[in-house]
């Protein structure tokens, strides 16, 4: 019984962290079609922003939920203005440029923070279920992921800004004809995507020892989650994160963490082979 509870929490946690990792990329890649290989580095910078803010005496939740997304969003804004906006619609070029950016940020972080591991402790104490210990922070991550999904859905579906953004992504010339500036909309959307990445990095920062190259650990997972999710943003994110999170945890529990990771990757390859358009290319078609 206790074991079932622990397993369930672990699975939810795995799914939630996948959602967090992929949300920013889902906006930047899923909506804007910018293959952002610097996604992991945006997360890394979110982590560093949090740690720096906490070391300066800011409340940790303020640092995670407000400061990190803002800082990373602003960095993203600069990146969009300087590099990305010249490359919209050139898929391979955005990929290469963002790869360059990712290397650039790794180098920058190494110069500023040094090539050492930094970290902060988790702010929520753990508790026991029967004979097992569960980290209380896992619940925080699950709650953040749930609110994130609801928030994204509400903004995209319920607000005028979300409607305009979706419209501009679908047909930017039409949006321009209706009097909206696609340039501005793209800029704002990129800002949001980067802020989401920063948030993810910040939320995960207390769990990992942060090094400048930490981003590389997330990038592949984020990409396969978003691509396997397919064209619909939120349904795809939720379904593929659910699938991969469960596969990962089952194999981690049954064999070992390394096999769990490998199983996740193999599942992704098989899934893409069977459903090249992603999950929502076949199922949940046309949903947001």
């Amino acid at each position: 019984m206790d074991l079932t509870v622990v397993l369930l929490v672990e699975m939810l946690y795995a799914v939630a962290s996948l959602i967090l990792i992929s949300a920013g990329l889902a906006v930047v890649f899923g909506m804007m079609k910018v293959i952002n290989l610097a996604h992991g580095e945006f997360m890394m910078m979110g982590g560093y922003a949090t740690i720096t803010a906490v070391n300066w005496g800011v409340n940790i939740f303020v640092a995670i939920l407000i400061i990190a997304p803002l800082v990373v969003g602003l960095i993203g804004l600069v990146v969009e203005r300087v590099v990305i906006r010249h490359l919209y619609g050139r898929l391979v070029d955005t990929m290469l440029a963002t790869w360059g950016l990712s290397l650039f940020f790794i180098g920058l972080a190494t110069m500023i923070f040094g090539n050492t591991t930094t970290g902060i402790s988790t702010p929520i104490p753990g508790f026991t279920v029967g004979t097992y210990q569960i980290s209380g922070y896992n619940f925080f991550i699950i709650v953040v992921a749930v609110f994130l999904l609801i928030g994204m859905f509400a903004v995209l579906k319920g607000t005028r800004a979300g409607l305009i953004a979706r419209g501009a992504m679908q047909k930017s010339d039409m949006a321009a004809a209706l009097g909206y500036s696609p340039d501005r909309i793209y800029m704002a959307t990129f800002f949001c995507g980067c802020a989401l990445s920063g948030l993810a990095g910040a939320v995960l920062a207390p769990l990992v020892g942060l090094v400048p190259t930490s981003g590389g650990a997330y990038i592949a997972k984020a990409f396969i989650t978003v691509i396997a999710g397919g064209p619909s943003l939120i349904a795809g994110l939720f379904s593929s994160a659910g699938l991969f999170g469960i596969v990962n945890q089952v194999f981690t529990f049954a064999i070992s963490p390394v096999i769990g990771e490998v199983a996740l990757l193999v599942a992704a390859v098989v899934l893409l082979r069977l459903l090249p358009q992603g999950i929502t290319g076949k199922i949940f078609k046309g949903k947001l």
Binding site: A97, G100, F105, G107
Partner: peptide, 17 residues
């Protein structure tokens, strides 16, 4: 003086642009 990776990244970005 300057990190190696940083320059590699910069070169790539500049070339793409």
């Amino acid at each position: 003086l300057i990190d190696n990776t940083l320059i590699t990244g910069l070169i790539l970005v500049l070339f793409v642009l």
